[in-house]
Simulated assay, not measured.
Amino acid sequence: MSERLDGTVALVTGASSGIGEATAVELARQGARVSIVARRRDRLAKLAARLEADGAEVLVIEADVTDEAAARDAIEQTVQRFGRLDTVIANAGVMLLGPIENAPVEEWQRMVETNVMGLLYTSHAALPHLLGAASSEPRRVADLVLVSSVAGRVARNGSGVYNLTKHGVGAFGEALRQEVTRRHVRVSLVEPGAVATELAGHNRPEIRETLSTRFRDMERMEAEDIADVIGYVVTRPRRVAINEVLIRPTEQEG
Rank of each mutant, 00 (worst) to 15 (best):
R220W: 00
H129P: 06
T66I: 11
E106H: 13
A53K: 12
A69E: 14
H129G: 02
A227L: 06
R220I: 00
T87F: 11
I242Q: 01
R81D: 08
F172R: 04
E174V: 11
A92M: 03
A63L: 10
A151L: 12
S135Y: 01
L246K: 04
R239W: 11
Y232P: 05
A142M: 10
T13L: 08
M117H: 13
S35D: 08
R29L: 09
E52T: 11
D225H: 12
A175Y: 05
R50S: 15
L47R: 02
R33M: 13
V180I: 12
P205E: 07
I230C: 02
V60I: 15
P138V: 12
S17G: 04
V79T: 11
L44Q: 09
R43C: 08
L96H: 00
A133T: 09
T250F: 15
T13Y: 00
H124C: 03
E57T: 13
A126F: 01
A134R: 06
T197H: 12
A92E: 04
T210F: 08
R183C: 05
A63C: 11
D42Y: 06
A10P: 00
V116F: 14
S159Y: 13
T250I: 15
N243I: 05
Q77A: 14
V34P: 05
T23P: 03
G201N: 10
Y162P: 01
V245H: 00
G201H: 08
R81W: 03
I226K: 03
E52C: 08
D6R: 04
L44C: 09
A155V: 14
A194R: 04
S148C: 08
S136K: 14
S188Y: 04
A22T: 10
D42Q: 14
L164S: 15
L47P: 09
G160W: 02
L97R: 07
G193W: 04
D143Y: 13
V233M: 02
A56N: 06
G201W: 03
A223S: 15
A134K: 06
T235A: 10
G254K: 10
I75A: 06
D64C: 11
E244H: 13
L97K: 10
H202E: 14
M95V: 14
I230M: 02
